[in-house]
Write a protein that binds this DNA or RNA. Structure first.
Length: 411
RNA sequence: CGGGGUGUAGUGUAUCGGUAACACGCUACGUUCGGGACGUAGAGACACUGGGUUCAAUUCCCAGCACCCCGACCA
């Protein structure tokens, strides 16, 4: 991709209507644009990041038998009345059509999926099932804030599992725990698996919390890794020694990037989702649901990985693998083009800053702001066939042949 | 939903009871080219919307809307 053709450009100043780091940086760097409070548009750079996060999550969901579907955003009011949530779900967006028909804009999808499951599940042979989607969700938040961290419209992965009995559901729940750990690890985040309230569904749930001082949640956890609870339910106290001798427990602010719930039979009962067991008796299916905030993750990653110059994307979610800068010097133009083509042929995603009449300093500043992990410079200084490599997270630079750089980047 | 604040070129700001200035960005030409260069010449604003006060309102007052902050809320 040539930077000169990329839609969206960097801004020098912070937007005046944003306070959170993630919103400021993402807007300044040209990843997103605010539509209304709590709603953001994703520009080419932003969408690339969003897709990388989504694809990582998708791969992991597929790896444990998840089948991808896409459910409706506009939803049947009657289903929401059946579960009582038309009234009780505070953040439910309700829309009325010009023909006076009322709909819910989906904040979650039990009300849509369970009736579908009822249509296709009749026997214990039809279970278990694991279905997920990556889709835009709507929540009528009383107050949106913190950029992508808490919006009214956001992208989320929600997976729902259906099982013959609670034991099987809990077994899968443990499988999902492992997958969640893997997802966040792949995205470069340290997410602490935290015990939390079960809400109206059950006695407990688990949240995946990323430590961040700008977060809205608060947890108490053991740095040794054997304990973590949301302060809402925590019985332990800050500074209290860990039972296994890991030292004092810590109370920290966090961003919740995922959560998993054992739903049991709450929704199965509401919609009459039953199956015949081996004895021919009707049983309610047991359910679990598992969410990951895709767009929120993008915000969380920026909150965690940045410095005074801009964003520092982890490799796995960066919009491009390398940011190629050409510093104009008579006779060097072909070198830049050759480098770009060579990299592209090697399967490396390159953002090539080919702008003319832009000083090196400005190009470097944009590299830092946009935050692609590797920066390559081609100039009279580097010489033909050579490039200077600098990692966004490091200070030092080194010059090498394009081939060698390709090798080191591919590792 | 309570409390507070803000609304002026694409962006960030200034100004003033007499219809708006600066910086960045943008256009053209020239000089530059390794950490946000420089010169010259330009384009770009119904000052959020609607009322009111006034000879005169972007400025003062009221209402609405939008956005921001604190709190409440967050299955």
């Amino acid at each position: 991709m040539q930077y000169s053709q990329l839609f969206g450009k960097t801004k020098r100043q912070d937007p005046k209507d944003e306070v959170s780091k993630n919103a400021k940086l993402l807007i300044r760097a040209g990843f997103v644009s605010k539509e209304v409070s709590g709603v953001y548009n994703f520009l080419p750079l932003g969408l690339r990041v969003l897709n990388k996060i989504a694809n990582t999550v998708r791969e992991e969901m597929n790896s444990v038998g998840g089948q991808e579907i896409l459910l409706s955003a506009l939803q049947n009011k009657v289903s929401w009345q059946k579960t009582g949530r038309w009234k009780s779900f505070d953040a439910l967006f309700k829309v009325k059509s010009q023909y006076d028909q009322e709909y819910a804009l989906g904040p979650t999808h039990e009300e849509v999926l369970v009736p579908i499951a009822r249509e296709y599940v009749q026997s214990y042979r039809d279970l278990p099932i694991s279905l997920y989607q990556i889709q835009t969700k709507f929540r009528d938040e009383p107050r949106a804030k913190s950029g992508l961290l808490r919006g009214r419209e956001f992208l989320m992965k929600d997976l729902y599992s259906f099982h013959a009995d609670e034991k099987d559901m809990l077994k899968y729940y443990e499988v999902m725990k492992g997958v969640y750990r893997k997802v966040f690890e792949r995205l470069g985040l340290e997410a602490i698996e935290t015990k939390a309230a079960g809400g109206t569904f059950s006695e407990f749930s688990h949240e995946y919390q990323v430590v961040c001082e700008n977060g809205e949640d608060e947890i108490i956890y053991c740095p040794g890794g054997d304990y973590s609870e949301n302060v809402e339910i925590a019985t332990a106290k800050d500074g209290q020694p860990c039972e296994l001798g890991h030292g004092p427990l810590k109370k920290v602010k966090t961003i919740e990037v995922g959560n998993i719930f054992p739903l049991k039979d709450k929704f199965s009962k509401a919609f009459g989702l039953t199956y015949k067991d081996k004895k021919g008796e009707d049983k309610f299916a047991q359910m679990g649901c598992y969410g990951i905030g895709i767009s929120r993750l993008m915000g969380a990653i920026v909150e965690v990985y940045n410095d005074d110059k801009g964003i520092i994307w982890p490799k796995t979610v960066s919009p491009f693998n390398v940011h190629l800068v050409h510093i104009e010097d008579p006779g060097t133009e072909p070198w830049a083009k050759d480098t770009y083509e060579k990299l592209t042929k090697a399967g490396i995603e390159v953002l090539w800053d080919n702008r003319e009449d832009v000083t090196a300093g400005e190009k470097f500043a944009d590299c830092d702001l946009i935050g692609i992990p590797a920066r390559l410079v081609v100039s009279g200084k580097t010489g033909k066939g050579k490039v200077e490599l600098k990692m966004r997270s490091e200070k030092q630079t080194r010059v090498g042949s394009v081939d060698n750089v390709i090798k080191s980047l591919s590792v």
